[in-house]
Design a protein around this nucleic acid. Structure first.
Lengths: 248, 248
DNA sequence: ACCTGAACACCGTTCAAGT
DNA sequence: ACCTGAACACCGTTCAAGT
C-alpha cells in the first residue's frame, strides 16, 4: 500500500534508478521493479513499452544530470546574441567562456558517471538519443559555435568531447574492479610479470590522482580544439601500416 | 558430427565470436553456442567456468586483434635498447616513432571495434583485463617511456589513449543506429526541432568523413601528449561550479 | 481503465546419471 | 574422462480474465 497513487512512467523510471542504485543493473528486472512499486510486473507495461524502452529512458535520465535544469530555471531559448568569445568569466579570469562551459559539463558528466558503477555500462549499450542527450549535445555545440568554431569543426568537437567523457569514464570505472579481481592486474602489481610486461610494471605502482588525470585530459582536448579553431593543425601522424603482415 | 575433435576452450571462444558475428551478441547463449558446436549446452562448462568467463575471454580475443601477433613473429622481449626518439620512420618522414606506433594501434583498434557492431558493448561492460589487454597496455606504455615520457605521464598517457579509443569508437558506433531509429535524431535532420535545438540543427547536416574525424582526434591527443612531455601545460580550465544551484 | 494470474518460450547453471 | 537429460530458479512478454 503506502504511496501508490497513480503509477506514471516517470515514477517507473525513478524506481528503476533507485533499484539499480541499490542492487545493481542486473537486479533491475521487471518483476523486481514491479515489487518495488507494490505492483505486479505486468502492470509496468501500461506505462512503459518494453524493458528496452525503460532502459533507454533510464539512460536519458542519467544524461539529464549532466546538464543544467534549464526547463526549470526559466531562461527563454534566447540564443540570438551570443556572448563575445574571450569575455572574462564571472570569476574575473580571462579563460574563454566556451572552455569553462564545456569543462563544466565534462566534469559534471564524469562525476555523475562515476557515482553509479552501472551508469557507463548502461549508456554504452544504449544508442538511444533522448531529449536529455539532445539538450546536452545542444549545449556543447552552441558553446563551440558561439566561440567562432565552424559548423564542421563544432560537429567534430561535439563528438570529440562526447567520446572523451564516455571513454575516459569507462576506462576509469574499469580500474577498481580490475584491481579487486584476481586478474592479471594484481599479479602485475606484485611484480610477478615484470619480465613479460616491463613498461606497465614500471608505471603501474604510480600513485596518481584520478581527478587530476581527468582534468589533464579535459584541458588537453579543449586546448586541441582551440588550436584547431585557430587554424593550427597538429602534425598528421599516419599509422605505419593498416595491418601487420598477417597470414590470410 | 563433422569436425568434433576434442572441444577446447579456444574452440569455444572462436565459436562464440562466430556466433556473435552471425547473429549478434544477444544470440550468444550457452544453448545456441552448444548447438553450433554440435554439443549440448552443459558440455561447454567443462571448458569454460561460466558464461561471464566466456565473455571475458571473448573480449580479450577482440583486443588481441589490435596488437601485432608478437608471440607468433618470434621477436624476443628485447626492450633493452629503445630506438632513439625522433628517428625517421621507414617512410622517410621525421615523425617521431612513438607517434607512429601509437597511431597505428589507435587506428587498428578503431577499425576492429567498428567492424563488429557488438564489440564496444561487450568491452564496455567487461572490466576484465586479460593477456591481450596487458600486451596492448604494454605496447602503448613502452612506446611512451621510450620516447622520454616520465613514468607518471606514461601512465596518464595510457589511460588517455585507451579512453580515446573506446570513447570515440562508442560514440561513432552509436551514430548509425541513432539515425536508423525514429529517435529525436531523425526529427532533427528534418529540421523539426530547429527552434528548440538551433546549434545541433545547424551542424547535423554536415557531410563529414568519419575516418577523417577520428584521425583528427588521434592527432589532437598525440599532439597534446607531446606538449605535456615537453613541459608545455595547457591552460587550466576550471569548471565554473561543480553543480548548478539545484534544490536538494 | 487499470491491474492480475497463469502461461509461453526462453535463460544460466546444478547434478545425478549415462557411456 | 567426457557428455547428457532432467530439473531448478529465474527471465521478458502475451493475453484472457478479473475489478
Amino acid at each position: 500500500m503506502a504511496v501508490r497513487d497513480a503509477l506514471t512512467s516517470d515514477r517507473v523510471v525513478d524506481a528503476a534508478l533507485a533499484l539499480a542504485d541499490a542492487h545493481g543493473l542486473e537486479a533491475l528486472t521487471m518483476r523486481r521493479l514491479g515489487a518495488a512499486l507494490g505492483v505486479e510486473a505486468m502492470s509496468l507495461y501500461r506505462h512503459v513499452a518494453s524493458k528496452d524502452a525503460l532502459l533507454d529512458a533510464l539512460g536519458d535520465a542519467l544524461v539529464a544530470f549532466w546538464i543544467a535544469p534549464a526547463a526549470e530555471v526559466g531562461t527563454p531559448p534566447e540564443t540570438a546574441t551570443p556572448p563575445a568569445a574571450g569575455s572574462p568569466t564571472p570569476g574575473g579570469t580571462t579563460t574563454e567562456a566556451w572552455r569553462t562551459a564545456i569543462a563544466t559539463i565534462m566534469h559534471r558528466a564524469h562525476r555523475e558517471l562515476l557515482s553509479r558503477p552501472w551508469a557507463i555500462e548502461l549508456l554504452a549499450s544504449r544508442p538511444h538519443v533522448g531529449p536529455a542527450r539532445l539538450r546536452y549535445a545542444e549545449e556543447i555545440t552552441a558553446a563551440l559555435l558561439d566561440a567562432g568554431f565552424s559548423t564542421q569543426l563544432a560537429h567534430h568537437g561535439l563528438h570529440i568531447v562526447d567520446g572523451t567523457i564516455m571513454g575516459f569514464s569507462a576506462q576509469e570505472a574499469r580500474r577498481p574492479s580490475a584491481e579487486a579481481m584476481g586478474s592479471g592486474v594484481q599479479r602485475l602489481w606484485d611484480g610477478e610479470l615484470a619480465a613479460e610486461f616491463p613498461a606497465i610494471s614500471r608505471t603501474i605502482r604510480e600513485r596518481h590522482d584520478h581527478g587530476e588525470e581527468y582534468t589533464l585530459m579535459v584541458d588537453l582536448v579543449l586546448d586541441g580544439l582551440a588550436r584547431l579553431r585557430d587554424g593550427e593543425r597538429p602534425p598528421r601522424t599516419a599509422p605505419s601500416a593498416p595491418y601487420p603482415q598477417l597470414i590470410g
